[in-house]
Every structure is written in structure tokens, then in C-alpha cells.
Amino acid sequence: MADLLQPFVLSLQLAFVTTLLLFIISIPLVYAIYFHSGPTKPLLKAIVSMPLVLPPTVLGYYLLIFLRPEGWLGQLSQQLFDIRLVFSFPGLVIGSLIFSLPFMVNPILSAIENLPLSYKEAAYTLGKSRWNTLWHVLLPNVKSSVVVGLVMTFAHTIGEFGVILMIGGNIPGETRVASIAIYNEVEMLNFDNADLYAGILLAFSFVVLLIVYMYQNQRPQGVI
């Protein structure tokens, strides 16, 4: 039973770490994009949203090349921290951060962009800086979108496959998350275990979406 649960424990650990780090990373990114008024703003949005349309295997391939031990980042990580980035949990975290980035940034950014401009203008009138305006005025008015971003990022990380397989492989207790475990069981023709893993992930996905839509349905009218 412990061996069967291990992939789910690893998936939950990866999803928790990824969601926490992405929340920390995404707020400055939202700030940079929202307050940027130059012609490169669409470029910034395109870069953030690229994982939505880029095939996971393509992203995983480039990450594998970028993080390999022969690369500068792989060598730096090995020399400074004695951490191998490919076929390891830290590598999965890096891949998950990039692959799930738009699921955190886009809901928050879209909600803020749909707020009335009077919110920002009133904050400026009161002498608020851009950062204070974002943190104390704009974000509190899009709390529901922040929650949706957190939940969707967590759920999306749980279901990752292509990127994880490319940069993490299938190492028990290290990189074999739940989605990889299904692939592994099917390869070994253990369809009973594959059915169990797939059924749990199916139920989890449905529950997550149900919670998100119920939360959105119950929020007060006019709240983004």
C-alpha cells in the first residue's frame, strides 16, 4: 500500500511547493506586466502564456537541454549546492514552475485588468506607489481570482505528465508522480493499479473543478 501511495504523496509535495513558489513569483510578474505600457507588453504576455500552447514534450526537451549536467546551470547547481537538476525532484519543481506559470499569472492579471481604472487613479490620488496600489488596492479586489489561480495551479501540477517524464524520468520515490505511475503501470500491463491511479486523479480533477465553480457561483455580484 505504501508503494501505491508514494506517487500521490510525491505529486502532492510537488504541487504544494510549485503553488507556493509560483504565488511568490507571480505577484511581481503581474506588477511588471500590468504597469508596463510599452510596445513589449504583448510580448511579455505571450512569454508567460507560452506553456498553454507549447507541447509539453517540447518544453520538457528544452528544459532537459538547459538543465543537463553539461549545461552552465546544471554545472552551477552541482558545484554550489551539490544538486542534480535533471531526473531529480528539484528539476521537477523547475519544470512545474514554468509549465504552470500561466495558470497562476493569467487569472490574477486578467481580473486586475478588468477592474475600473478609478481604483488605480484613486490610489494615485492618495499618494500610493504602484506597488502599494497593487498590494493594498488591486489584489484585495480580485481575491476570488487569486484563489482560482492557486487552486488551478495546484491541480494542474498534479496532472502534469509530458514535462515531468522528459526531465524527471520514472524514478520510484524521486520523480515517479501519480501521472507517471499510470504510464508505468500500463507499460507493465498492471491495469488494476492503472485503474486505481487513473480513477483517483479523475475524481480529484472533478472535485477541484467543482470547488472552483461553486466558489465562483457563490461570490457576490460585481466581485472579480
Rank of each mutant, 00 (worst) to 15 (best):
A2H: 10
A2D: 12
A2W: 15
F8S: 07
L12K: 04
L14S: 02
A15V: 07
I24L: 08
Y31V: 07
I33E: 12
Y34D: 12
G38N: 14
P39E: 13
T40F: 13
K41V: 12
P42E: 07
L43R: 01
L44D: 12
I47L: 14
L52V: 03
V53W: 12
L54Q: 00
P56H: 10
T57L: 15
Y61V: 06
Y62C: 04
Y62P: 05
F66R: 10
F66I: 03
F66K: 02
G74R: 01
L76T: 11
Q79P: 04
D82T: 09
V86K: 06
V86P: 06
P90R: 02
L92M: 07
V93C: 02
I98M: 11
I98D: 02
F99W: 11
L101F: 06
P102A: 00
N106F: 07
S110R: 11
A111N: 03
A111E: 05
I112P: 09
E113Q: 12
P116D: 13
L117R: 14
A123K: 06
T125G: 15
S129R: 07
V137T: 09
L138I: 09
S144N: 13
S145H: 06
G149Q: 04
V151F: 03
V151S: 13
F154K: 02
G159R: 10
V163T: 14
I164G: 00
M166I: 06
I171M: 05
T175Q: 08
V177R: 11
A178D: 12
N184R: 13
M188C: 00
M188D: 09
M188E: 07
F191I: 11
D192N: 05
D192T: 13
D195E: 02
L196M: 07
Y197G: 09
G199E: 00
I200H: 09
F206I: 15
F206K: 13
L210M: 14
Y215K: 12
Q216G: 03
Q218E: 10
R219A: 05
V223W: 09
